[in-house]
Amino acid sequence: MRTFAALAVLVAVAGCSVQVSGTAQPSGNGFVVKDGTQLRFRPVLQELTPSPPAGAAADRQSADPAAQQAAAAALDCAQGRPDPLAGRDDPALPLVSCDRAKGTKYVLGPAFLSGADVGWVDARLDPQTGRAVIGIRFTAAGTRTWAGWTGGNVGKQVAMVLQSRVLTAPQIQSAITGGETQISGQFTLPEARQLAHDIAGG
């Protein structure tokens, strides 16, 4: 299971073309997104520390802040526990979810990108730092949406959500306009490879 020592961050990859076809072949540590319907990019509205579930189950897609807090309190983020909402969340509504590897709970906004906007995902070592990173390459349409969203949300977090669960929620370091993004953090190459695999849909 993934465990990261520090908050992951998103950075632009220098020298990448804005026009990305989505047909590039992945490397040995790369994965093509085959089904883009389950992966969603959602803004993080609130990050909550891990806590045991408390209270009755509540609506995890309510727009009411009080209902969101109640849903977060009641949400059970234990690993291996099935999610009754898995794959059935409405992308147009907010979502209360969690990262089951860390137990962190999140209140997320409506989705603004999907896996259909991603060409491929890979894991590799950054030649400048020697650290493992995940690269995400967007389609041409995804590049435009991503550039606009990251430009307006520097310093904020974005959650990559697969079947209603948060895979990672890195922080935006700058506007990302070149069509490819790197997620960097304190993880090993095998952990980065697993995350890339999960982002691509498993």
Score class of each variant (00 low, 15 high):
Ala169Ile: 07
Trp120Cys: 03
Thr181Val: 10
Asp90Glu: 13
Pro43Ala: 10
Leu39Glu: 00
Asp76Ala: 14
Gly142His: 01
Ala123Trp: 00
Gly152Lys: 13
Ala132Leu: 09
Met1Thr: 13
Pro94Val: 09
Cys16Ser: 14
Ala72Tyr: 05
Leu113Met: 15
Pro94Tyr: 08
Ser184Ala: 14
Ala116Glu: 13
Phe4Met: 15
Pro26Ile: 08
Ser164Met: 06
Gln173Met: 12
Ala66Thr: 09
Asp35Asn: 15
Arg137Pro: 00
Ser164Asp: 07
Leu39Tyr: 02
Asp99Val: 03
Phe41Val: 12
Val96Ile: 07
Thr143Gly: 05
Val107Ala: 09
Leu10Asp: 00
Asp126Lys: 12
Ala66Gly: 01
Leu162Met: 11
Pro170Asn: 12
Gly202Cys: 04
Ala141Phe: 07
Val154Arg: 12
Thr23Tyr: 11
Thr143Leu: 08
Gly185Arg: 13
Gly202Phe: 07
Val32Met: 11
Gly55Thr: 13
Val118Arg: 03
Gln128Glu: 14
Asp90Arg: 11
Val13Asp: 02
Leu45Thr: 05
Ile134Ala: 07
Arg131Phe: 09
Thr181Lys: 03
Ala67Gln: 10
Val121Arg: 08
Asp83Cys: 07
Gln46Met: 08
Asn153Glu: 06
Leu113Pro: 00
Ala5Phe: 10
Gly148Glu: 13
Trp149Val: 13
Ala57Tyr: 05
Met160Gly: 01
His197Ile: 04
Gln25Arg: 14
Ser174Ile: 03
Gln69Trp: 03
Gly36Lys: 10
Phe4Val: 15
Lys102Cys: 06
Glu191Phe: 04
Leu167Gly: 08
Gly178His: 09
Arg124Glu: 13
Ala63Gln: 11
Gly28Cys: 04
Arg124Lys: 15
Pro127Asn: 08
Asp90Met: 09
Ala74Tyr: 06
Lys105Pro: 00
Val11Cys: 06
Ala5Gln: 12
Cys98Ile: 05
Val96Tyr: 02
His197Cys: 09
Gly202Gln: 11
Leu167Glu: 05
Lys34Arg: 15
Ile136Asp: 00
Ala54Lys: 15
Ala86Phe: 03
Ala8Glu: 10
Val9Tyr: 07
Arg165Thr: 14
Ile176Leu: 14
Gln128Ala: 14
Asp83Pro: 00
Phe31Lys: 05
Gln38Glu: 11
Gly155Phe: 03
Gln68Ile: 08
Val166Ala: 04
Gln173Thr: 12
Thr188Lys: 10
Asp83Met: 07
Thr177Glu: 13
Arg81Glu: 05
Ile136Arg: 02
Gly119Cys: 06
Ile134Tyr: 02
Ser62Tyr: 06
Ala192Phe: 01
Asn29Phe: 11
Glu180Leu: 10
Asp126Trp: 05
Gln38Trp: 08
Ala147Val: 02
Ala159His: 01
Gly151Gln: 07
Thr3Cys: 10
Ser114Ile: 02
Arg144Trp: 05
Gly148Lys: 11
Trp149Thr: 06
Thr23Gly: 06
Gln182Ser: 08
Asp198Pro: 00
Leu95Ser: 03
Leu189Cys: 04
Pro91Tyr: 09
Gly155Cys: 06
Gln128Arg: 13
Ser114Tyr: 01
Ala175Trp: 02
Gln25Leu: 14
Pro50Tyr: 12
Ala111Val: 00
Thr23Met: 11
